Amino acid sequence: MEKITRKGKRPLIIIDELQALAEIYFNGGRELLNEMFNFFVAMTKESHLCHVLIASSDGYFIERLYNDSKLRKTSELFEVDYLPKEDIVYWLNNLEKESNITDFTLTSEQIEYVWEHFGGSIWEISNLLGQFLKVCQDGMVPQEEMERVVARYVMQARSYFEEYAGLKKHRHSFFSEVNKSLAKGFFKETDLVALVESGVFTEDGLREELNGLVQKNFFYYNPTRAEYKLQGRSMEIGLGMFLHEVDAVRA
């Protein structure tokens, strides 16, 4: 590091999915993460030898690190979100340039259809384009084939909620309260206060449920605003389908 710095360069250390190293101890019970961050602080704040970028898909984990370590006054949180609509529209209008796809093009209506079901989820849309390559005909994707492929993804998202909730009524109530708050695009713990007041959850039990669903990638948690979102538009649709079916059975 010192040799590189003397050449006028500043190294950048990137560690992704850091939560995989949580709860690891060594040498008499010292926590690995704590020792790592002591080293990072020494290399950055004290010695100015490099920058360190830590990434995690678990917002609760990032918040715990930020609050419990020496990072509060020595670091900055960055949010990595889904792409905005204008980027998705540009991408899907330029498949040859951006994805090397020449077998088909999408109509503006089909691009809107993809956006409505997947939002800015890059991975899901990339995978979707791969499925379209299997069903395209004469330089286009037949609408009925597109709807069939998309429906399979949405049904899979619905099944996630069904498998998780099972016959547990408290989880049905939980997802119902979450769904009521999604019109604004996110929800907070305070939006779920009725679940505590009615005795469905204790405060600690509710936070444990939220934490577990963040770790399972049902929800995304933004620690800077204490806000939750579902993990993508397909999960929003899947949740709505699941609750609609539950209500139909109860009726």
Rank of each mutant, 00 (worst) to 15 (best):
I4R: 01
K7E: 14
R10N: 12
L12S: 01
D16G: 13
L21N: 04
N27E: 12
G29I: 05
R30G: 06
L32Q: 07
M36N: 04
V41K: 08
M43P: 08
T44R: 05
K45W: 04
L49C: 04
S56L: 06
I62H: 02
R64A: 09
Y66A: 05
S75M: 12
E79Y: 11
P84V: 05
P84H: 00
W91A: 05
W91M: 07
K97Q: 08
K97L: 10
S99G: 01
T105F: 00
S108E: 14
E112T: 13
V114F: 03
E116S: 09
H117T: 05
G120E: 02
I125L: 00
N127T: 09
L129I: 04
L129P: 00
Q131K: 13
K134S: 08
V135Y: 03
D138I: 01
G139N: 03
P142T: 08
P142Y: 02
E144W: 00
E144Y: 00
E147V: 02
R152S: 11
Y153Q: 03
R158H: 05
Y164V: 00
G166K: 12
H170C: 14
R171T: 10
H172C: 00
F174G: 00
K180N: 13
L182Y: 03
A194V: 14
V196R: 04
G199K: 07
L206R: 03
R207C: 04
G212W: 10
L213G: 03
Y220A: 11
P223F: 11
R225V: 10
A226Y: 12
E236R: 10
E236A: 07
L243K: 04
E245F: 10
D247R: 05
